[in-house]
């Protein structure tokens, strides 16, 4: 899947889960930068990403997904 398609699907998920329709993703964005990105919404975001992209993350992979750029990179790898 192309990177821009990954980014646009991910943007949709982030806007829905973190309840911010104007949210614009940036590579360096972390939980500190997004108001509603807390422990519970994090779980929902991961679940939605897995569902929307048809992937399943291993625990070791999940624990490296700190920045938005990390999520995009692992999706690119899994979907290539």
């Amino acid at each position: 899947m192309e990177r821009n398609l990954i980014e646009s699907k991910l943007t949709e998920i982030f806007r829905e889960v973190f309840n911010d329709s104007a949210l614009v993703l940036q590579e360096d964005m972390t939980a500190n930068d997004v108001e509603n990105w807390d422990s519970l919404t994090h779980m929902m975001m991961i679940a939605k990403v897995e569902e929307a992209f048809g992937v399943k993350f291993r625990l070791k992979e999940l624990n490296k997904l700190k920045r938005v750029g990390d999520i995009i990179a692992v999706l690119e790898e899994k979907l290539s």
Binding site: A31, D38, L40, H42, M43, A47, L62
Partner: peptide, 28 residues
């Protein structure tokens, strides 16, 4: 820690990995 992750997200990842999604939604 190994990935310099906040403990809250490490814990979330464990919970989301082990506890079925329908129960995670109940908590949400």
């Amino acid at each position: 820690n190994e990935d310099d992750m906040p403990s809250s997200l490490l814990k979330s990842n464990l919970i989301g990995y082990v506890i079925p999604l329908e129960h995670v939604k109940k908590a949400q």
